[in-house]
Design a protein around this nucleic acid. Structure first.
Length: 896
RNA sequence: GGGGGAGUGGCGAAACCGGCAGACGCAGCGGACUUAAAAUCCGCAGCCCGCAAGGGCGUGGGGGUUCGAGUCCCCCCUUCCCCA
């Protein structure tokens, strides 16, 4: 069977109507018994049959350039879902909404004649998978296999049009071989390095955690307490790409909100680096400031509790400083930087010299304090404090009685020093010697020049973005392709030696001493390099690693010579549409962009950015129920009674709340159950109909009925359940042009519906597409015998992205032998989109007072005359002062 | 604390550039068919006053611009998500 027709090809040839019934049902899975032939809508028989057919025919296989069936004349379209971590609890209907959305897009693009790449895979490495394995006692590899089998089964039942031949799994050696290979490239470019950094240590999990895995000083997973401690870690130098990650946001079609979040995260600030000599310590204290113009107002300095200068604290202050540092170590960054919090700090006994002043000038001798609102990880871990013009410095100075000096005069009308306020904006420099009288931007420039001349400062740009902590002391991740030699050198293994496979370990739990579990796999760790004894690196990569390049592997997933071929990447890249939750707005998308840019620099990809268009689907929430004691009651134990909700079989009233779907809230809805009860097409239509894809909206089991009823009504327009024929008699032959009467009424409704379906793809508000199709059904239902074959075929085609199983079934029953998966997609006919008579709203003084129907190109005075008549008594005794006429819409008569 | 959304009937929502607020559906009510029920079909349905014709009010609240505001501007309230 021809898998694909030309995009403009008409419907394929029809079967003879005398053909035996078996011929208008698909033969699908060869081993499957033909389903009982019935004219009643039965998704349970239709859907598996078509799914088997698509699989047998490889309907959704997307050939690469050079492969069998590849058609270079067609445009390409790459539509990608954020691939899931295959959790043990399986897929719920909230995950499905995004997958259904992309599938609707993929199916329409295919019907429009595109080569569509629409793959799916598994983000299977990482902490959650490992913890799940520990909890259940099943080996991670085994648990992953079971879970992915379950996810795949669930996804297939929804009728998603993935090219399953491209499935990838980040935890398989054939995949992570290339993750290691890419890491090697980063390592060779000097973008991977080891450093002793203060990192979160979780005693309970026996591991270091990334900042993003620690919330308020507790682990995201398990909620265990964490402390900061320095450890040697692998880092990736993402900061080297900060500027490009920022700049290139301008060229991609992403939601502005996500771009803003990324810009915030990168946090570019321009200013200066300034050196302060520390009195008697023979040391220099380097600070970064965005306001070098305020240097003359710096009356003290503050260092972070981790700052190395604290080693020089004089004996008199030693005990106080040590105690303070110890207390700060257990605080989270949140606690430390919270503006509302009382500032704490201790004088170190040290003084610095402010380079704005001559040596010996008493104004230049300023005290150095230690305070935890300064973070070691940001900037240089030390600041110059300008309490006159910085809120936090101001609070600190007031609390500890430090000098506040005004060096910026606010512009007219704003409160400043004179009013007892702390002015942080731009103004005019005062009390600042050489920069006096300059506006802030000029003063900044001049100050930097002066500092540079004297060799104590220079212009500098910093970023909030920090290098990426890339190692974990855990088992379930990609091993680093690195060897530590006896002579102390660290080298990468040869590319030919990849993958460095994860050794099987019976017990893979973290060691109690915090060392990586792989360190216990002695046979694996101890190896050799060119005759020299060597030890493998025992850290593993973080959960994010595998997802940093998976969209590239999908382009050429079975290539065992290279991660992907140049030809495949040239053809498919970049991803045209990437859909996933906004939860990944920063981390995943920033890391992925970073890797992609490194690969771009290496000439391995041809675009600077991986994802041209990004779209965030909304959260599906669900009802949850609480009893009077606030205890959760599982949704399936609840029944509606009038306006109330009660525990099944009792009269105990429950409160209904709307929240996210979670096992712990006992409100998870499994698509398997919905499909078993209503069918996959109903699930797809309901999820499309709930609201715009971007919105968060509650799952309401009661509402599904509407979508089911819609599909049943569609079915009955095509098929008479009481007859034996595949379709109703009026659908066997097309009516000859010109169309007239009721058939023309249907034709207008059909074209309007097609136009509205097309429109819904702009903002992914498929709810309006379904509404348009429902209105069409309402129109046809009033005159079913006027519905013609040609109209029925176009109806089936526009229905196909949303309810593909039913659409295929109806298409086949209409006599087409070829799947409609490759189109053609119908185009609305302009002539049927405009009406000859338009209804004009008549307003008097802006209030709606009537309506008139007029020919669509009626002149204004004719419309106005009709309007005056329609307005009737509303105009009595009044004269019309002004007329506002909006053709095709309304006419407003404004009276005196 | 910072950032990003969202507030429209009993519920999910629609309304393109400022132009009939509530399309489409759920739940509800009435009717037809049925011995009955389910299913299906037809009809009603924002709120208030009114027997009705009709009128008034209405898109979280308050102001503003405009012939006209759910939509634009200013202030405020509530709520969800993300980050620290």
């Amino acid at each position: 069977m021809g898998r694909r027709g030309s995009p403009c090809a008409g419907p394929a040839g029809s079967l003879s109507w005398a053909a035996p019934r078996s011929e208008w049902f698909v033969e699908g899975g060869a081993k499957q018994d033909p389903s009982p032939v019935t004219n009643v809508y039965d998704p349970a028989s239709i859907e598996p049959r078509w799914q088997a057919h698509w699989e047998a025919e490889q309907t959704f296989r997307a050939p690469n350039p050079g492969e069998r069936d590849f058609d270079p004349a067609r445009p390409k379209y790459y539509v990608l879902d954020m691939f899931p971590y295959p959790s043990g609890s399986g897929l719920h209907v909230g995950h499905a909404v995004g997958y259904i959305g992309t599938d609707v897009v993929a199916r329409k693009k295919r019907m429009e004649g595109c080569n569509v790449l629409h793959p799916m895979g598994w983000d299977a490495f990482g902490l959650p998978a490992e913890q799940y394995a520990i909890q259940t006692g099943v080996q991670p590899a085994e648990a992953t296999r079971i879970n992915t089998d379950n996810f795949r089964r669930q996804l297939k039942k929804i009728g998603l049009s993935y090219d399953w031949a491209r499935e990838v799994n980040t935890s398989e050696p054939s995949y992570y071989r290339w993750t290691q290979w890419i890491f090697k490239r980063l390592y060779e470019k000097g973008l991977a390095y080891q450093a002793e950094v203060p990192v979160w240590w979780c005693e309970e999990l026996k591991t270091v955690l990334a900042n993003e895995e620690v919330i308020n000083g507790r682990s995201e997973r398990g909620n265990y307490p964490c402390v900061r401690r320095p450890l040697k870690q692998w880092m990736l130098k993402i900061t080297a790409y900060a500027e490009r990650l920022l700049e290139d946001l301008d060229g991609i079609d992403w939601p502005e909100s996500i771009k803003i979040q990324q810009r915030e995260w990168i946090g570019k600030s321009e200013g200066a680096e300034i050196e302060f000599a520390v009195e008697g310590a023979g040391e220099k204290l380097v600070v970064f400031t965005t306001r070098p113009d305020t240097l003359w107002g710096a009356t003290f300095m503050v260092v972070a509790p981790e700052h190395k200068l604290l080693a020089k604290v004089p004996a008199a202050q030693r005990a106080a400083v040590d105690a303070y540092v110890k207390a700060a170590a257990s605080k989270s960054e949140l606690e430390r930087t919270e503006l509302a919090k009382d500032k704490t700090g201790v004088f170190t006994g040290l003084f610095a010299h402010n380079p704005a002043f001559e040596a010996g000038d008493p104004r230049g001798r300023i005290p150095i304090w230690v305070a935890d609102y300064v973070l070691i990880s940001y900037g240089t871990g030390a600041i110059m404090s300008v309490p006159g013009h910085d809120e936090r410095d101001y609070e600190f100075a007031r609390k500890f009685g430090l000098e506040v000096r005004e060096v910026v005069k606010p512009p007219q009308g704003e409160k400043g020093f004179a009013e007892g306020a702390c002015f942080t904006g731009e103004g005019t420099a005062v009390n600042s010697g050489p920069v006096d009288g300059l506006a802030t931007p000029q003063a900044k420039k001049k100050a930097i020049e002066l500092l540079a001349q004297r060799g104590v400062g220079k212009a500098r740009t910093t970023y909030k973005l920090r290098d990426w902590l890339f190692s974990r002391q855990r088992y379930w991740g990609e091993p680093f392709p690195l060897l530590h030699l006896e002579d102390g050198r660290t080298i990468a293994v040869d590319d030919e030696a990849l993958p460095i496979t994860l050794p099987f370990m019976e017990d893979f739990k973290p060691s109690a001493d915090g060392s990586a579990p792989l360190a216990r796999a002695k046979d694996w760790v101890i190896t050799s390099h060119k005759g020299q004894p060597a030890r493998r690196d025992t850290d593993t990569m973080p959960g994010w690693a595998g997802s940093c390049w998976y969209w590239l592997r999908f382009m050429d997933p079975r290539n065992d010579r290279e991660p992907w071929s140049r030809a495949a990447e040239q053809y498919w890249g970049p991803v045209d549409l990437y859909v996933g939750g906004a939860a990944h707005a920063v981390m995943h998308l920033l890391y992925a962009r970073f890797w992609h840019k490194v690969l771009f620099d290496l000439g391995l990809v041809h675009t600077k950015e991986p994802f041209q268009k990004l779209f965030n689907q909304g959260l599906i929430t669900a009802f949850a129920y609480q009893d009077s004691g606030g205890r959760l009651v599982a949704s399936d134990e609840v029944e509606a009674r009038g306006q109330d909700y009660v525990r099944r079989g009792s009269s105990e009233k429950l409160e209904q709340i709307v929240t996210k779907m979670a096992k712990s809230l006992k409100n998870v809805v499994n698509p398997d159950d919905v499909i078993a009860e209503h069918g996959a097409d109903t699930l797809r239509v309901y999820e499309s109909f709930m609201g715009p894809l971007a919105d968060s909206k509650p799952w309401n089991p009661r509402d599904i009925t509407g979508s089911k009823r819609f599909l049943e009504r569609v079915w009955r327009l095509f098929v008479d359940p009481d007859a034996q024929d595949p379709v109703r008699p009026n659908l066997r032959v097309d009516q000859q042009a010109p169309l007239a009467g009721e058939t023309e009424t249907i034709e207008r409704a059909l074209n309007r519906a097609i136009a509205r379906v097309d429109d819904s793809f702009k903002a992914f508000n498929f709810n309006t597409a379904i509404a348009a199709l429902m209105e069409l059904v309402n129109v046809i239902s009033k005159r079913p015998e006027a519905f013609t074959r040609g109209q029925a075929e176009r109806f089936a085609l526009v229905l196909a992205p949303f309810a593909p199983h039913m659409a295929e079934e109806l298409w086949r029953r209409l006599g087409n032998t070829r799947s409609l998966a490759h189109g053609p997609w119908p185009k609305p006919i302009a002539a049927f989109l405009v009406d000859d008579v338009v209804e004009i709203v008549v307003q008097v003084g802006g209030k709606m007072r009537g309506k008139v129907g007029v020919p669509k190109d009626a002149p204004q005075d004719a419309v106005e005359a009709a309007a005056r008549e329609a307005a009737g008594s509303w105009l009595e005794g009044k004269s019309v002062a002004k007329v506002v006429y909006v053709p095709g819409r309304l006419i407003n008569l404004i009276t005196k």
